[in-house]
Design a protein around this nucleic acid. Structure first.
Length: 286
DNA sequence: AATACCGAACGTCACAACAA
DNA sequence: TTGTTGTGACGTTCGGTATT
C-alpha cells in the first residue's frame, strides 16, 4: 500500500488529490492504473509494462467545483481547455495490451452496431436526412488497408416524404477518396452542382480547391458566395467531426467503465486471497 | 391533457494540438 | 506559418416520464 507523499504527474497537472492503492500480484503481467475523473464522468486506465507484477489502482478525488462561478467564463474556459483530452490520455498509454484491447472492444461494438461496413446507415435529425453508403475497403497484399470511397448524402427530407430527394431540396454530398475529400453543393435551383476538393495527398495543394463548374471568380458577390460556401463546408465538416467525436467518446467511456468493473472485481478477489494467505501464515507462525 | 423536469443528442464556436 | 482536426463548452431541441 502506498499513498505517495510527493505529487504524482496527475496531481501536478490537474491539481486534484490522488489516492493510490497498490497491490502486488505474483505472475500478474501488467501494471494497471485506474483513474476516475469524476468531474467529467470519465474513467481512464493506464496499463504499463508487460512484466511488472503490480496492480496499481489510482482514484482521483472528486474535484471541488472551482469552475462553478459562471461570471468568470473566460477563466473557466481557460482551465477546462488545459485539461488533457481523453484521446491524448489514450495516446499516452504505453502498453500495447490496453490499446489493443480498446481497439478490440471498439471493433466489437462497431460490429454490434449493425455491420456498419456492410449496411448503409440512415439517420434523420430534425428535418435533415443523412445517408451514408458503405465504403469500399481495399486490402493490399501486404495486409495494409486503404480507405476507399465513402459517400455522405444530406438532404432536406420532410417527415412524410417517401423519397429522400425532393424538388428544391438542398443536397450536400461528401466523399472521401484517394485524392482527398470532396464536397458537392448545389448552386441555385437549376441542378448545377459546385464541386470542391480538399486535397490530403498527391499533387493537389492542401486546402479547398474549386474543382468544377465554370464561372469566373472575382466579383465581390462571388467572393462573398465563396466565403459563404467555405463556411458551409467548415460547418459541415465540423458537424460530422463532432458526431464522430461523440461516438468515439461514448465508446471509449463504455470501454473504460467495463474495465474498471473488471479491475475492481479482480482487486476484490486479490484482497480476499491476500487475507486468506495472511491467516494461513499466522496459523503457521502461531 | 397540460406542464415540468430530465437526459440524450445535436450544432456551433473557440481553441489546442498537430501536420504540411 | 498556416490550415486542419479533435474536442470541451454552451445553448437548443426533442422525446420520455412524473406530477398536477
Amino acid at each position: 500500500m502506498s499513498g505517495g507523499s510527493s505529487p504524482t504527474e496527475l496531481e501536478r497537472s490537474s491539481g486534484q488529490s490522488v489516492s493510490v492503492v497498490q497491490v502486488s500480484i505474483p505472475n500478474q503481467p501488467v501494471q494497471v492504473q485506474s483513474v476516475i475523473q469524476s468531474h467529467v464522468q470519465q474513467s481512464v486506465i493506464h496499463a504499463t509494462g508487460q512484466n511488472v507484477p503490480t496492480i496499481q489502482v489510482v482514484r482521483v478525488a472528486p474535484v471541488e467545483d472551482d469552475l462553478s462561478d459562471d461570471s468568470d467564463g473566460k477563466k473557466r474556459r481557460e482551465i477546462l481547455s488545459r485539461r488533457p483530452s481523453y484521446r491524448k490520455i489514450l495516446n499516452e498509454l504505453s502498453s500495447p495490451v490496453s490499446v489493443a484491447k480498446i481497439e478490440e472492444e471498439s471493433n466489437s461494438s462497431q460490429s454490434q452496431d449493425g455491420d456498419s461496413q456492410d449496411v448503409a446507415t440512415n439517420l434523420t435529425t430534425n428535418s435533415v436526412h443523412y445517408q451514408q453508403t458503405p465504403g469500399t475497403i481495399q486490402i493490399s497484399a501486404d495486409g495494409s488497408v486503404a480507405q476507399g470511397l465513402q459517400m455522405l448524402t444530406m438532404t432536406n427530407a420532410s417527415p412524410n416524404s417517401t423519397t429522400a430527394v425532393t424538388a428544391g431540396a438542398t443536397i450536400v454530398q461528401y466523399a472521401t477518396g484517394p485524392d482527398g475529400q470532396q464536397f458537392y453543393i448545389p448552386v441555385g435551383s437549376t441542378g448545377t452542382v459546385q464541386a470542391y476538393q480538399i486535397a490530403t495527398s498527391g499533387t493537389l495543394p492542401q486546402g479547398v480547391v474549386m474543382a468544377t463548374t465554370g464561372g469566373s471568380i472575382g466579383s465581390p458577390q462571388q467572393l462573398g458566395e465563396e466565403a459563404a460556401r467555405k463556411r458551409e463546408l467548415r460547418l459541415l465538416k465540423n458537424r460530422e467531426a463532432a458526431k464522430e467525436c461523440r461516438r468515439k467518446k461514448k465508446e471509449y467511456v463504455k470501454c473504460l467503465e467495463n474495465r474498471v468493473a473488471v479491475l475492481e472485481n479482480q482487486n476484490k478477489t486479490l484482497i480476499e486471497e491476500l487475507k486468506a494467505l495472511k491467516e494461513l501464515y499466522c496459523q503457521k507462525e502461531g
